[in-house]
Design a binder for these strands. Structure first.
Lengths: 177, 177
DNA sequence: CTTGAACTGTTCGATGTCGAACAATACGAT
DNA sequence: ATCGTATTGTTCGACATCGAACAGTTCAAG
């Protein structure tokens, strides 16, 4: 069951044409994506899937909070915001957030209160328990991040965070074009 | 590269009571995630969701190939590989890949051929049409990536790609621990 | 040869997210 | 006041992915 392979990384991606790319020569490691390998979007997706899955699996017994930790962290920093705004912040749809908040509320982590100036909207808040759970999970998340970025210099991590910020901004800025 | 909103990061988690954290002061822009904001995993997820969605929407009329371009690119670079290995490469489950290949095959992009040495497994190949479609979509994907990374220096992009590679390697290396 | 473990593709039920609708509410223009 | 339009939360059906099971096959150990 153990994967006794030393992780031969640094695939060079420079195989200009697709054709007789390999004859069993690459049997050892993970398959690269050829041309798409130098693309941010592709690596972004792969890394995200793996990171998200690992985090959720590691904290499987803690309910559904780990999956929605991002949302919970936003609520903690901005208590009382409307569901629409929260959905926008985590890039999910308003309709999806309904179910999610139902679950989190049922687990006793969040709370909907009618907004005082607008009878349409609810403000969303963390409960006491929610505060505690989020704080604990944020610590876990820091550990998780340390594992993700093992072997990477602090400067490069900083750069990556800045790049991701800009990517997000680019995508949010002109979504119509 | 500077964000319009400095968003006093390094939230210190010690805002004892939830209450008047902000009074409409942050009404203008997207809500940040406070403590989680400095975490790779969070930004990774946000960026990926937005990037994936934008790409898929832009190419909505081209069938389901855009969504599975990563997979198709791998098949192009490594024709004839088994479904299991492909699933592993894109970090999806074997069972998920069955449906996906059904769809792609039905759209005439891929093809399953029985593997010559092993009666259990299929080799997966691109059809002629598949080759053409993938090539065209890879060009689109490059354009898309250029949009994502507008305003970011080449060196920083390079760094980010390397960091993502390492993150992926870290996650794949010891998945059992 | 035989046998048991491991692997391959597959099916099936469960869950999560989406898009399109909808009623209730807000609000600006007339 | 009164429209028309926008927004908010919600419901509902469609679809994607998952995990657990399964039969068929490989292969090493005995």
């Amino acid at each position: 069951m153990e994967r006794a392979k030393p992780t031969r990384k640094t695939f060079d991606a420079q195989n200009g044409e697709a054709g007789e790319v390999e004859d069993g020569a690459d049997a050892g490691r993970y398959l690269d994506a050829g041309a798409a390998e130098t693309t941010i979007a592709y690596k972004l997706r792969l890394a995200q899937i793996l990171a998200f899955r690992a985090f959720e699996e590691k904290l499987a017994e803690r309910g559904r909070a780990p999956r929605y930790l991002g949302l919970l962290a936003i609520i903690r920093s901005h208590p009382g915001q409307s569901q629409s705004r929260l959905a926008e912040a985590v890039a999910l749809r308003r309709s999806s957030l309904v179910t999610i908040l139902d679950i989190l509320t049922q687990e006793g982590l969040t709370e909907r209160r009618p907004a005082p100036g607008d009878r349409r909207s609810n403000g969303v808040w963390l409960t006491e328990k929610g505060e505690r759970v989020v704080e604990a999970l944020l610590a876990e998340s820091r550990r998780h991040d340390a594992m993700l970025t093992a072997g990477i210099g602090a400067a490069e991590i900083e750069t990556t965070l800045r790049v991701l910020d800009r990517v997000i901004a680019n995508l949010r800025g002109d979504q119509g074009t």
